[in-house]
Design a protein around this nucleic acid. Structure first.
Lengths: 243, 243
DNA sequence: CAATTTTTATTTGTCTGACATTTAAAAGTC
DNA sequence: GACTTTTAAATGTCAGACAAATAAAAATTG
């Protein structure tokens, strides 16, 4: 692990990259202890604050964790699905909000990915996951629910659908796509009528999953996508000419 | 933006979280300048090194960028697809390598996602993207190609397929899934015979995309998935009893 | 007056040295 | 031997300083 003090980049960024490379390449393995901050500053010939800035960069990516006290230090962290998942949600959310991604583009991506799960979910969904979906559908039918709560329940419903595929990699990848949509979905104001329609489609999906009928799940997801986009277009229309 | 000095968490982590929340919530907008490090240490009642550690955490997530000099400082960064993409690749790669995800699980996820793109790609692929695929197929047929180079070309081929859908959100989401598989794919040793087989399937996919025949693309992807898994199982088999 | 150069002020990047806090292991005590 | 105390090592935090970059202001010059 070496750095080039002549490079224009910050020393702390270079050091972070060097350690990151060592972790990704497997040179440093999970739970292995890094040298202490004092030793690292010796190795890289920089001061301790600079080393610390580098370590904080890595900690922000959940690549290392630190412990205080004797026999403490920085340890290579096992990246959990949970950690990766929350990072992905943050990144995806910002990406959509900062880059003016249209509702249609995000919606298309989301449902395309979700439909990819549908056949596996129909085959493998557990009774537990089905129960979660039913519970969320029930929640969605409660009167007096705010639009935000309705959206949150919608996300939970779809998350259960995705988890039904029983593939953690799929669940992780799709978490970002589904959750990142929530801020965009929140722009929609759901009328009682449109909530009813969505709940009907959700019930149809749950029924089809129960019957392990992949084709109906897929078709209903297509319907749900069309309906969601229709609602969004109505909102956009009303914004343009607020009669 | 407030922090609680009594909390067990590091001050720099708390400060980073406070600023991160302000960015995600839209309180701080793109290209807006944060207060200087000196001002921030005043506001949060901590020292400058602590503020700096917080800022480096945010920089590691591409949430801010910094500039030196007068009228320099830390600015809210517009998260580009490129930034998000490379972060996702790093995260996904580590996630797979550190959590002993089986080849089958990763492979299933990858092809499920890719098949989600297939119909759109058949409809929208540009001549340019088709040319990229043909070029990669040609590269794959070159004799003397290392297994690593063959895999890299394979990734490029599939990336073009995904980009063909013309949905940047999909491309971003799938980048991680496809690229993160590469280290796992690299464990496979491709015989001349198996390369031939894969190239044939790639050609079939390219032909079908050219003819805008979504169904054949989908079917061929299924075949490619089966064949890839077959190869992986053979490798695993040979590892178990190295005759 | 206009163009160029110099100065200045601001801000991040880095260093030094110190002290506080946490923690595990070693030493001491009953 | 079990418990308590001490000690050492490590991270967390602070204060103050200087270096380097950079843009704006001031001075200079043709």
């Amino acid at each position: 692990m070496k750095i080039d003090p002549q490079k224009p980049a910050d020393l702390s960024a270079q050091i972070a990259q060097a350690i990151r490379d060592a972790i990704v390449s497997g040179e440093l393995i999970v739970d292995e202890r890094l040298p202490s901050e004092a030793e690292l500053s010796d190795q890289f010939q920089v001061s301790r604050p600079t080393v610390r800035e580098a370590l904080k960069r890595l900690a922000a990516q959940s690549l290392i964790r630190t412990q205080r006290g004797a026999s403490g230090g920085a340890f290579v962290n096992r990246l959990s699905f949970q950690d990766a998942y929350s990072q992905q949600v943050t990144t995806s959310t910002l990406l959509l909000s900062m880059n003016a991604v249209t509702f249609d583009t995000a919606c298309e991506a989301r449902y395309a990915l979700e439909r990819a799960c549908a056949p596996m979910s129909a085959e493998r969904r557990t009774a537990d996951q089905l129960a979660t979906m039913r519970a969320e559908i029930f929640r969605q039918s409660q009167p007096g629910l705010t639009d935000e709560a309705f959206c949150a329940s919608d996300v939970a419903f779809h998350r259960a659908l995705v988890d039904g595929a029983g593939n953690p990699v799929l669940s992780y990848q799709l978490a970002g796509a589904v959750e990142a949509m929530q801020p965009l979905m929140n722009m929609i104001t759901f009328t009682a009528r449109s909530r009813e329609e969505i709940i009907l489609l959700h019930e149809k999906i749950a029924d089809a999953l129960e019957a392990r009928d992949a084709e109906t799940v897929d078709n209903t997801l297509v319907d749900l996508e069309s309906y969601t986009r229709l609602l969004a277009h109505d909102v956009a229309e009303r914004r343009r000419k607020p009669a």
